[in-house]
Design a protein around this nucleic acid. Sequence first.
DNA 1: TCTATGCGGAACGCTACCGTTCCAACGGAA
DNA 2: TTCCGTTGGAACGGTAGCGTTCCGCATAGA
Lengths: 207, 207
Amino acid sequence: MEHKRSDVIPKAARVLSGAAVMRADVTKALARSFFEEWARTGYAGLSLERVARAAGVGKAALYRRWPDKVSMASDLLSQVGLTMTDVEEHGSLEADLQAVLLAIRRVLRHPKVRRILTDLHGEIERTPALELAIRPFQRARRERINGLIDRAIERREVSPSVDREMAADLIAAPLYWRIAVLGGRSDRAYIERLARITGAALRANQA
Amino acid sequence: MEHKRSDVIPKAARVLSGAAVMRADVTKALARSFFEEWARTGYAGLSLERVARAAGVGKAALYRRWPDKVSMASDLLSQVGLTMTDVEEHGSLEADLQAVLLAIRRVLRHPKVRRILTDLHGEIERTPALELAIRPFQRARRERINGLIDRAIERREVSPSVDREMAADLIAAPLYWRIAVLGGRSDRAYIERLARITGAALRANQA
DNA sequence: TCTATGCGGAACGCTACCGTTCCAACGGAA
DNA sequence: TTCCGTTGGAACGGTAGCGTTCCGCATAGA
């Protein structure tokens, strides 16, 4: 937060120094090993000493970049690319839904992402600073779903008085529950049917 | 598992001993403080030393009952009452749904339950033994939903070829997501609308 | 009353992580 | 080529939990 990387290494240092800048490969190795350890041990069990060791890096190099665990987590999370390029328009509510569900599944399929995400959801109540770090992700998902609903309203597939908040819950929750919480499978047929049924729910969703 | 309380204190000891049995009030204090600490620090950060201290009890008293953390957690979880008395029949699919949703909300409203549950879902991937301990709860929820669907089929409200697995996901997930993951509210109106919309989804759910 | 056992409390040795500090060595910009 | 900050590595004192062991006391059944 107040100790982002840019604070630790003021620009002046890069410009004025007649010598080395912090090595990008070391930073990358630390970030990689941070998420690796997070998935393995959970946030609470995460040891910065082990992170540095696993990265093949001295502890000093880590503490020179981030002052503590929560700053490191927030900073790294905020740098994860929001690969939200798709503004899908697939012709119908069900087709749009299926595209969104497939996108969610694509993310939740990575075991590391799945573990970090469930762990994060439990940890946020204990470490509120982490909530700020995932706000952008929540907003991104929300906007994506809002776009989907806007198009459905234009097509007169759902009522303009639809409850968007509930719609967001209806779309994201069942798949998250199935994959991340229950550890279950979700093949193509499951996604297709879930899209169809969620579509029916949204058509019935009006204030 | 292999170290349940009944193993640690064989019946013979109670019968043959000319003296004291382990005190129930101490056991109860330990159980209480175990869940308290769990909600506060998370499973990974849970220290048995702190549990004993908070219970006003010596560490020896704790280790005399359970050999380690995971045994204690499994044993205590298995003793939590499954308050599943209600076999609700409320006349319609939507009314039954609303009753189930209200029951779920009643559980998730307790902050301690909510914290332990989200923490548990994250921890299970790391500590598979915990999964066995919550199987009974999952089964109970599943049977409850199965009963609801059976009645809906009898009333010809949903197709007999309904996908029960998906139905279970559709019913439980959105409310869990909203309350436990997002930390959001869920007033009476929300529950009523969610019941109505979920009903529409189930009516559309057929193979 | 006698007696066996659980009781709280304290201490044991061990391991691990924190956050800091020092060092000699390396390497890129001027 | 010079020079200066980053590098990996090691060590620091401090905190904390684990799982065990030992006390002297309290207690409840025979």
